[in-house]
Design a protein around this nucleic acid. Structure first.
Lengths: 102, 102
DNA sequence: TCCTTTCGCAACCAGTCAGTTGCACTCAGC
DNA sequence: GCTGAGTGCAACTGACTGGTTGCGAAAGGA
């Protein structure tokens, strides 16, 4: 259960988004594999994966010598519901405003 | 029509989120008013408002000598639908995976 | 055992950005 | 015209962080 704002911040970086979307669309991969497909070094990828992992957007598992990372979409739902909450606050405000004219 | 990733990045900063949520929950305010309620200077607020405005999360209007800012929630919907798209990509991948076993 | 691959850790660099300070401008009220 | 409130612009600073390089450790294969 990661807080939505941390997930928001994690998705704010373009490279981190690229890593996540790559894992999400083409399936699990290791940091080295990702480094071949993206224009940054393995170390940069590893840092981003660690960041993504800390907010629950990525799962790590060992396969022999390799460490394979997999995307997890559950935190996205929490962000979505947070956005919905903010939106409904706005609706409430409209409602109160309407009420004040009756 | 602001792109969802810019909105994402705009909402990533805690202070900027605080400004937006303040405007969203308590209604329009000027930069000076916001500076009284938040622990940063008016200039910092003004920069954040400019940033929020550039992604469509805030509307500005003049009231006499004052400049009043108001929250706009439409871009939040775009972010939500983007999140949904990412989620559905994941569903597609599951579907393909399922198909490969038949 | 030796070599290679993969990974993790630490140090370092450079760019970005949040925040402050200072100053100039505008406009309403006296 | 003067004063004060509200705003905008520019320069500066400090901290954070994305990215790289270098090195050492662990693990599989010949």
């Amino acid at each position: 259960m990661s807080d939505p704002q941390a997930v928001l911040a994690a998705l704010a970086d373009p490279t981190r988004r690229a890593v996540f979307e790559r894992l999400n669309s083409k399936g699990p991969a290791s940091a080295s594999e990702l480094a071949l497909e993206l224009p940054v070094t393995r170390q940069a990828i590893a840092k981003h994966l660690s960041h993504l992992g800390s907010v629950g957007l990525v799962d790590r598992s060992h396969q022999g010598r390799q460490v394979v990372f997999e995307a997890r979409v559950a935190p996205l739902g929490e962000v979505a519901s947070w956005l919905e909450t903010v939106g409904s606050e706005w609706d409430d405000r409209l409602e109160r405003l309407r009420g004040s004219f009756e």
